[in-house]
């Protein structure tokens, strides 16, 4: 974990910010860690989703788990700031994740409330949307992200607000489909996968809301038809992480279901080479990333 410069007579402390790849690697090696990649283009709501899961733990146990530790408390706090009264904003928002940000992994250790199982570590990638736009447009880009091969869960985020509007729903569904296609064609076989609709409150308020269920059903059927052989069981979850006041959703709507998915097991064993021809490795190696991927 990174530390600040050590002055004489002082001992540096961990920064508390999001982790870079090396620090994430170290964390993944030191414990049984679930690595999660929320995937989606800019503005889809990746960081808001992560912030609101964190906010839930500020209020108490969530999704049958208690907060147990975090190496990135300040990283979460930075991301949550602009949705709080303390920011002096009138409307909540989330700052875009900068493309240049090399500190892109958030860490949570969660303990089952039952006490019967040990705590589990979650490493969640908070990558900028541009990274996924590149992946969507160029399958070879997926190979430069070794973490995708290590990931236990990839959640494809689909902008519900766009799905709810006649002008934008076709493009939003096409973008999600192409990103899934690219990740699968990139040889990613280990991770369990889900489709998470974000901003579902805004979807219901759009000018296409009366056709929303039908459009969603067609979209889901298309994904199953195209990818079912490679995707395995694909779950679809409708969320409203930070719904607008006056809508029929509470804050963090269905984020518990998202988190349960992330804490679940991956589909398969790790592949050494994140190409369609990768080979399986020892179980021990499931707990680390690989080599020199691009530090996003």
């Amino acid at each position: 974990m990174s530390t600040n410069r050590s002055d004489e007579g002082f001992v540096p402390l961990p920064s508390g910010e999001a982790l870079n790849v090396d620090e994430a690697n170290q964390t993944a090696r030191s414990s049984v860690t679930r690595v999660v990649v929320p995937a989606g283009v800019a503005g889809v709501g990746k960081t808001t989703l992560l912030s609101e899961i964190y906010e839930k733990y500020l209020e108490g146990p969530f999704a049958e788990h208690r907060f147990a530790y975090s190496k990135t408390l300040l990283g979460f706090e930075q991301r949550a700031h602009h949705a709080r009264v303390a920011s002096r904003r009138l409307t909540p928002t989330t700052l875009r994740t900068p493309i240049s940000d090399t500190r892109a992994f958030l860490h949570l250790r969660l303990a089952p409330c039952s006490g019967k199982l040990p705590p589990r570590d979650l490493l969640i990638a908070d990558w900028p949307g541009e990274a996924f736009r590149e992946m969507r447009d160029n399958v070879q880009t997926t190979w430069s992200h070794p973490i995708l091969a290590r990931a236990d869960h990839i959640a494809f985020l689909v902008d519900g607000e766009s799905l709810g509007h006649l002008e934008s729903r076709q493009e939003a569904s096409h973008e999600a489909d192409m990103l899934i296609q690219s990740v699968l064609d990139g040889g990613i076989k280990r991770a369990a996968m889900s489709v998470v609709y974000t901003k579902w409150d805004a979807a219901l308020a759009g000018n296409g809301s009366d056709q929303l269920d039908e459009f969603r059903s067609v979209f889901e059927d298309m994904l199953r038809r195209k990818h079912s052989g490679r995707l395995g069981e694909l779950r679809f979850i409708r969320t409203a992480a930070r719904p607008k006041p006056g809508t029929p959703f509470n804050r963090g709507h269905n984020l518990d279901e998202v988190l349960r998915c992330w804490l679940g097991p991956p589909r398969g064993r790790l592949l050494v080479n994140p190409t369609p021809h990768g080979v399986a490795v020892r179980e021990f190696d499931n707990f680390r990333f690989f080599g020199q991927g691009r530090q996003q």
Binding site: A83, P245, R251
Partner: peptide
């Protein structure tokens, strides 16, 4: 760590048009 959405809900005011960060 009071959320803005909760504050709006409690105040009973109409939600405002969302602005991007930096506009306020």
């Amino acid at each position: 760590s009071w959320a803005i959405t909760d504050a709006i809900e409690i105040a009973g005011e109409e939600p405002q048009v969302e602005q991007s960060a930096g506009e306020e």
